[in-house]
């Protein structure tokens, strides 16, 4: 563990909590893409299948359980609890355009042709594009509430910090995880234009619709 990865995990947790609290407190999921949240729940589900078979550390196990629980709680709030505020009109990104290429690629590019490795690779590739429905929804509605922009900021920051973690681990322990790195760089690039808007425009984001 290093400071970059720890900061990344904290940033990731903060992002998830920001969104969950926003929905819970405002009792509404307006402006939130339920599709992206389903994809994130799928990312955690397919990535943490080794939760009960491989013990890394208490931290690792606890964080996996927390991420799984919070992501499913978020999906539950959107599609069940506050479903009448769910903006299905604008949450229309064709997720099959993400899932099919990601499934195909995870069969082509993986470390081992075993179910666990392919599902892990699928989750890594899927995570890099899972925010697309949310970014698409924001461009469609032409705006994002300030809390949603904070959510996106911390979510983008987490994988940027993981890139720093991979650089650090390469230089200190010669470790590198090529699939995670390539996917993580692509994922972070997708946030770049949002980061620019977030920093220059501050809170409210008006995308040129």
């Amino acid at each position: 563990m290093n400071i970059f990865r720890l900061a990344g995990d904290v940033s990731h947790l903060v992002a998830i909590l920001i969104l969950l609290m926003k929905i819970w407190r405002s009792k509404s999921c307006a402006g939130i893409s339920g599709r992206s949240q389903v994809l994130f729940a799928l990312v955690f589900t397919t990535r943490y299948l080794d939760l009960f078979t491989v013990y890394i550390s208490a931290y690792n196990t606890v964080m996996k359980v927390v991420f799984l629980a919070l992501s499913y709680a978020t999906v539950y709030l959107i599609y069940m609890r506050f479903r009448n505020s769910y903006d299905s009109e604008n949450d229309t990104f064709r997720v099959e355009f993400l899932l099919i290429p990601v499934i195909g690629l995870s069969f082509l590019e993986n470390y081992a042709f075993t179910p666990l490795e392919i599902l892990w690779t699928f989750s890594i590739f899927l995570e890099s594009v899972a925010i697309m429905p949310q970014l698409f929804m924001i461009t469609k509605t032409g705006e994002a509430e300030s809390i949603t922009t904070h959510y996106l900021f911390f979510l983008g920051l987490y994988r940027a910090l993981y890139i720093a973690n991979w650089v650090w681990r390469y230089h200190t322990e010669g470790f590198y995880d090529q699939i995670a790195i390539v996917s993580g760089v692509v994922q972070t690039i997708f946030y770049c234009d949002f980061f620019y808007l977030y920093v220059t425009r501050g809170e409210e984001i008006r995308t040129p619709s």
Binding site: R5, D9, H12, D50, V54, I56, S57, N60, M63, K64, F67, Y111, A112, E117, W120, Y162, N165, G174, F175, Y176, D177, I179, A180
Partner: peptide, 10 residues
């Protein structure tokens, strides 16, 4: 180095 099996990152 292919990282199979034990993955210690979230």
């Amino acid at each position: 180095n292919a990282v199979t099996g034990r993955k210690d990152e979230l």
